[in-house]
Design a binder for these strands. Structure first.
Lengths: 305, 305
DNA sequence: GGTTAGCGTTGCCTCTGGGGCAACAATAAT
DNA sequence: ATTATTGTTGCCCCAGAGGCAACGCTAACC
């Protein structure tokens, strides 16, 4: 595959620079015979004479001159390669492949990514978003280094790096008829409310399904969707309520377009936001450091519910 | 100097292509342990992880991907390098460094170079011209592979590849008063003729000096020059005569502007045109082949005087 | 012109280090 | 839980790289 051995090349190159095999041997700290043999071996493998052996040293033949410029060129290319590696190691660049649950997007981009970018500029991101199930799958199959998802069940292949309880709340529009419901809201009350819910595959959707089963009820879901944007709009427009962890709507809470109400349903309070990787996978350092930033800056992981 | 070992690179590359160390080991015909160790050694020398070891094989890390593209690129460059070597070996290209005596220029360019170019296109020439002494020096100091000169004396450092007797003739203009001199011309006659002669350092000049000494005479040299063109013009214009081997004025003889007359001076008939190289120098094949063309096609070497 | 110094090369020997073998740990699939 | 497959590691052996010294050769020097 590669006909040009590196050690042999070095001998050849130094011999050309020094002009004699003996001085090359001194510079490289080996015997002249070694240099002689290495160059000869290189010539054999290339099938071409590379140096003229003369009375007072050696000089490259025409083929040798060509090889020399080739090696010089390659050497400089290798230096840029090594500096790229240095940049990778020194956290000056890198690529992070992250899969995030839809609910984490704004939190992640607005907080974790922002602070990380300030600390380590030069990193690029491959950001997948989707349901909890999709995030888990991406991590399992190494399509992402790191996953952020809600209510990701334990499984052998997944190693959880951080996990914070984030109970589901009832989200309502402050201007709607449901704004003055008294807390905590019970399952019985919930059953009567028009709602927009996430489909299964999403952590939230699965939790609600479990709660429905436990209480033997079915919520009046006007909408089942795979889009959080649908749920938010649904609530803001006063069409009904939804059930989500609070961190998903941090901004809407802040600007007063959505309000939260505690739920008195134990099954809906067990949810956890988690950061996880594939079990056994050796991660780039950049990813490890990113986990720190996530746990320190993201609302979903800072606030213990 | 070179941190990237070729054998290690090959292991790494094949492992990435095959997707597992074991299949790579099969393809390379070695044990998996070898591949594993080589890749690990490469990682150590580069100070960077290159592959992620996984449950069902290996895959390059980010650094590994960069290295991979680098190696691919290098591989293709190496191929072009090897094809250049092939071209050199196959006599499809090369550079010939030739030093020729001034008198050989038109003969060499018109005959040897022409036929050689037809046989081996793609060769380039570095053509030095000068006196016999300059040609010898160029060959001695390896500034030329091959030398063509007149009356190059024997010396240890020079190996003569071909040598042909080329006696000096008297050159006259056919329309001049010396056109009807009877042959052979003696030294005594020569002494009375106005002449243009080459300076010493040239083979011809040195021979004439020797003959002068042997006969105890001095020729009436109106002009001493280091330029054959001067001598030719001098004769053509009917200003006098000169002494040169006939092959120097082949064209002038052919078109009738210069005529030759035999000389009855033994010292002036001993001259030889020779092709030579530095003793002990290993020559590119192209040069060896060129010698054939020279001896077969050049007037100076074809015609035994 | 012989002699000497310096060049690259080669034969011999030593010993390092690459690579085979087999057992092992870890993981995915059954 | 078990099995099959992955990469890894300890052990051992031998090819091959490299040191040593003698050699052949050329160039320069007296």
């Amino acid at each position: 595959m590669f006909k040009i051995d590196t050690v042999q090349s070095a001998s050849f190159l130094v011999a050309c620079e020094e002009g004699s095999i003996r001085s090359a041997s001194e510079r490289l700290g080996v015997e002249p015979s070694t240099i002689s043999r290495q160059i000869k071996a290189l010539e054999t493998s290339l099938g071409t004479a590379l140096i003229e052996r003369g009375r007072k040293g050696v000089r490259p033949t025409e083929a040798g001159t060509i090889l020399r410029t080739y090696l010089k060129h390659q050497q400089s290319e290798q230096e840029t390669l090594l500096s790229e590696f240095d940049a990778l190691k020194g956290m000056r660049r890198g690529e992070l492949m992250i899969a995030v649950g839809d609910g984490f997007i704004s939190d992640f981009v607005g907080n974790a990514m922002t602070s990380y970018k300030a600390a380590f500029p030069g990193f690029t991101y491959d950001l997948l978003s989707g349901s909890t199930e999709q995030v888990l799958h991406a991590v399992r199959t190494d399509r992402a280094h790191l996953g952020l998802a809600y209510n990701a069940g334990k499984e052998r292949a997944i190693r959880t790096a951080a996990q914070v309880k984030q109970p589901l709340d009832l989200l309502v529009s402050p201007t709607s008829e449901w704004a003055d419901l008294s807390e905590p809201v019970t399952m019985a009350q919930l059953e009567t409310l028009p709602s927009a819910l996430l489909k299964s595959g999403f952590g939230v959707g699965d939790m609600i399904a479990v709660a429905e089963g436990a209480h033997g009820v079915r919520l009046r879901a006007l909408v089942h969707s795979n889009s959080l944007a649908v749920l938010r709009s649904f609530v803001r427009e006063g069409l009904g309520v939804t059930v989500l962890p609070a961190f998903v709507v941090t901004r809407e809470i802040a600007d007063g377009t959505i309000a939260t109400k505690r739920l008195a349903v134990p099954e809906l309070r067990k949810g956890e936001a988690s950061v996880f990787t594939r079990y056994g996978r050796r991660l780039p350092e950049g990813v490890t450091r990113l986990v720190d930033h996530i746990t320190r800056s993201m609302v979903a992981f800072r606030n213990a519910g």
